[in-house]
């Protein structure tokens, strides 16, 4: 009798296990209910808190469901791009929405992207669009200094990336993210391209020699400056604006804005259609939606971007009117990226 009960229980356990396994196999994640429901798969490196509301609004407006895959800063931006490259022979994504441009150009060079010229992007200046239409740029973020106003008086605010070497600031009171990853790497690549390899190398080598703090990401730079653990640091406008808006004693300084200075790097968002996308029609509808002027304005309001590429009001968090940018085509910055990363790895990871 007891054996019968045991057998029943054993069979029950096995059934539960089989059910769990079957669920995992039968629901293949993205194709569920595909026939009834239109979907678009978007891979994005834009923070979930900013991109998710855009997806929800798109779903409500279009009736197309967005299945997003997010990247996180902790994986050093090696996540989604390498996933897209690995999926090249059997694409799973429809759209790639990046918070910057260099990884998008990597994908273009790897032949992962397909051309698409969105009508919504007709008012976006040509320099923000790829010549072959494999990607389109919009809404930018700038590389800026976040300064702790308790620790530095206005007369001591830094105003150039060369202030990383200024003796008046102790090395450990200055912070940057590892210049090998993310937007800091892109910024470094722009400096390598603009200043030349030697001068850029000397700048970073000297900064490393001064023991400036190299931390684990732009958000950490923001947090350490906001906490008063560092006097100032190099980060992105979206990170810094977050701290300003939450009432921390910090201010934002855009570096290298004087006449004889080179300007700062403004990094646009980019959006691209994946070659062989499983849902190309939906992908184009989504791209049209995202590239719409209203969306750029909404993204400024949400705090993700501060420097629109169109003639719309910029973020009130930082005055970017007439912002001077490093005069370089994006392709040049991209071409300098890999050699810069290799050189900076030798300098900073030791």
């Amino acid at each position: 009798m007891m054996t019968d009960r045991n057998t029943t229980i054993a069979i029950g356990i096995v059934l539960v296990l089989v059910l769990v396994l079957a669920t995992a196999f039968v629901i293949p994640g993205q194709h569920g209910g595909e026939e009834k429901e239109r979907i678009v798969v978007v891979y994005t490196s834009v923070d979930q808190v900013y991109s998710e509301p855009v997806f929800r609004a798109f779903e409500n407006e279009s009736g197309i469901r967005v299945l997003p895959a997010y990247d996180v800063e902790a994986t050093k931006t090696t996540g989604l791009v390498n996933r897209l490259i690995a999926e090249k022979t059997r694409p799973q994504a429809d759209v790639f929405w990046s918070g910057e441009f260099s990884q998008t150009i990597v994908l273009k060079n790897e032949n992962v992207l397909a051309p698409y010229r969105s009508l919504s992007a007709s008012d976006i200046p040509a320099r923000f669009r790829d010549a072959e239409d494999t990607w389109t740029g919009f809404g930018g973020r700038a590389r800026i200094f976040i300064v702790n106003t308790d620790l530095l008086s206005p007369d001591r605010y830094p105003d150039s990336v060369y202030d990383l070497l200024d003796e008046q600031y102790p090395g450990p009171s200055i912070g940057i993210a590892y210049p090998i990853f993310g937007t800091t790497a892109t910024h470094a690549a722009a400096l390598y391209s603009y200043l030349g390899k030697e001068r850029a190398h000397d700048l970073f080598a000297a900064a490393s020699k001064r023991n400036i703090r190299v931390v684990d990401g732009n958000s950490v730079v923001r947090d350490l400056v906001a906490d008063g653990q560092m006097a100032f640091g190099l980060t992105d406008t979206d990170d810094a604006c977050g701290a300003v808006e939450s009432g921390k004693n910090v201010t934002i300084i855009i570096p290298d804005q004087k006449e004889d200075q080179m300007g700062t790097l403004v990094i646009p968002n980019t959006v691209a259609l994946i070659r062989g996308a499983p849902h190309p029609a939906e992908a184009k509808i989504f791209m049209d939606y995202l590239l719409d002027r209203k969306r750029e304005s909404a993204l400024v309001d949400s705090g993700w971007i501060q420097i629109p590429v169109r003639d719309i009001p910029p973020s009130p968090c930082v005055n970017v009117t007439g912002i001077k940018t490093i005069p370089l085509p994006y392709e040049d910055t991209f071409n300098a990226l890999q050699p810069a990363q290799k050189d900076l790895t030798e300098i900073f990871i030791r």
């Binding site: 993205q30 798969v41 997003p68 390498n82």
Partner: peptide, 28 residues
């Protein structure tokens, strides 16, 4: 786990650790 899950997670599905790291960057 984060590093490997992030690479293979089906679109539309994320783990709690992925969410934590997302918030971490946002500073929340």
């Amino acid at each position: 786990e984060l590093g490997a899950t992030l690479i293979v997670s089906p679109p539309g599905h994320a783990t709690i650790t992925m969410r934590i790291y997302n918030y971490l960057h946002y500073g929340s």
